[in-house]
Design a binder for these strands. Structure first.
Lengths: 154, 154
DNA sequence: CCCGATTTAGTTGTGCACAACTAAATCGTG
DNA sequence: CACGATTTAGTTGTGCACAACTAAATCGGG
């Protein structure tokens, strides 16, 4: 990093970095909201369903690790999915601390209709597969760096 | 895009794209939350202050355009900034529909302490200036594409 | 075996995002 | 000028994110 930038320059640059990410994330959310509307899912609910469709029944804990969400977010979200009849939650008999989440028949069936979603999203981005892959790689590296940052004073 | 990908492949790929962005945005939020804590600002409040520091007094409408936020989000956020003594809101005399937001002396003074924030964030990312610039360019292009998407069915 | 530490979900409270709506001021056209 | 259309903030309701906390089950060292 160039050490001759003024703090004022950095304040502007800084705005653009964090803000671009923030804006892109919300723009994605808007597009998903429209596309997911007739599935009756929100964007975070769709992410949870993706994990369940791919990996099947699992405890809340593991779902949270894959989604990077804690129980404070997942518990009410899963309750809503259960109320919608898409999943069931059951305390494990072996370890009564953990709650296993599994798809209902209806939840599993929804996968068929969800299969149309990715193409519509991909079309909306206008990005090709290679470009998306590179962007994803950078974002994942960024996430890992941010997660591991120690944030000592300047 | 290759047309020989199965819908199942796309469901997985799709998860990774939207999810990477979602995760990166939240990871950024976490880092900002820690760094901004002793300024008494949240991440979105900091974004609003950045705009005010750079462009000065302006109506809620224009603030919303720059932040891509509507009044439903901005009104309570600005109320909290006002309660914290950082901004004042006043109905315009010329057009009483619009409310002008301006920094208080305290709000303007906070800029000095905020000047330390960008370097700490930049350090946490581990990205160099050029890499950040390229990532920002891609994200902005993505946001524009998503904003302009018409979302016709497949 | 026992009791403190750990693990796992859930609850509570705060704040952001956004859709849908209301209220009031202003604009524009006949 | 009158009056409907538009603009601008604000309000309400839903859902997500996360910190801080609680409750209950399990684990493990003495």
């Amino acid at each position: 990093m160039s050490s001759d930038s003024s703090d004022d320059d950095l304040l502007r640059l800084d705005q653009q970095i964090c803000f671009s990410l923030h804006a892109a994330s919300r723009a994605f959310g808007s597009v998903y909201r429209v596309v997911l509307k007739d599935l009756g899912l929100t964007y975070p609910q769709y992410l949870a369903m993706l994990v369940l469709w791919e990996h099947g029944e699992q405890p809340v804990k593991r779902l949270g690790e894959q989604l990077r969400l804690d129980s404070g977010t997942l518990s009410p979200l899963l309750k809503r999915l259960e109320a919608a009849g898409l999943v069931r939650r059951e305390r494990s008999a072996r370890d009564e601390r953990s709650v296993h989440v599994r798809l209902t028949d209806e939840g599993a069936a929804l996968r068929e209709r969800a299969a149309l979603v990715p193409r519509r999203i991909a079309a909306a981005t206008g990005f090709d597969v290679e470009e998306v892959r590179e962007l994803r790689t950078r974002l994942d590296r960024l996430t890992r760096a941010l997660d591991g940052a120690d944030l000592e004073g300047p």
